[in-house]
Design a protein around this nucleic acid. Structure first.
Lengths: 136, 136
DNA sequence: TATAATACGCAATAATGTTGCATTTGTTCT
DNA sequence: AGAACAAATGCAACATTATTGCGTATTATA
């Protein structure tokens, strides 16, 4: 069994979820891509064909188990990624290049958690835009 | 003429846009609401009835003139707000309460602009979630 | 007030996401 | 391994949000 697949299986086991073909494929696709992608991109990246609805429901169950979360970029469709590079309080910043349009996960950029009088801040998401190393 | 209306007119004049009923109404609605709202909410908040398409096209023209921008919250529909509280490089943080669901603009919370080796960061957006003063 | 440029409204369509229900698959227990 | 049950999947239908085309109305300017 490939490393990716056993990794995916372990994630599902640890989360107490049924280990289904669809979930394995989706997790492996997200592991391979390693950036936020849409349902449609996931569907195309899969080894086997699955229905759109299955993908959405898979993402939903993985989301409830905190294995996956949504990333909101400046596009109509939601993007999804694995949560393994995020802490509970803070997702890593996402950078989108205004030139080439690519989005990068800046997993090694740690920003201080904001605080504001009167508010309890439990979660922070940061979106950055500009020029990536290739385009600048 | 009311203060809101002349404010709206000035914004349009300064941007070199036609001063139309729809644009005036939309800007005034956004000034009154003072938080990110959807096309549907805008339509309901208007003094006069306008077609959905007109609202979208109005938001588009105001967006191109940098008077308005989109805010992406954890909801399906895009939210829009006036840009007058944002600098070119940084939109103010938005806070959404996980309890009551309300979203607040934290216009007085200034966060340092992130920087990352190799990247030119031109714009930063921050989204926060947690408990608001009323709900905590 | 005539003219040209632009915006508006309506109808149709596109893109994305969700629900209901019958069938299939995964897990557990023997 | 096989039976039984819970859960996931596929398909069709539908819901929500956003966009496009085009004829008509409004706005700015001279």
């Amino acid at each position: 069994m490939k490393a990716l697949e056993s990794h995916a299986k372990n994630m599902l086991k640890a989360a107490g979820l049924y280990c289904t073909r669809a979930r394995l494929c989706v997790i492996m696709a997200l592991l391979r891509e390693n950036r936020p992608i849409t349902q449609e991109q996931i569907t195309q990246a899969l080894d086997a064909p699955f229905d759109r609805v299955t993908i959405y429901r898979t993402l939903d169950s993985l989301g409830k188990a905190d294995l996956v979360h949504r990333v909101f970029l400046e596009e109509r469709a939601c993007h999804y990624e694995l949560s393994h590079h995020c802490s509970k309080t803070q997702c890593h910043p996402h950078f989108t290049c205004t030139q080439c349009g690519q989005t990068h996960c800046l997993t090694d950029l740690k920003l201080p958690l904001a605080h504001h009088h009167g508010y309890v801040i439990q979660r922070q998401q940061v979106r950055l835009a500009g020029l990536c190393p290739q385009c600048r």
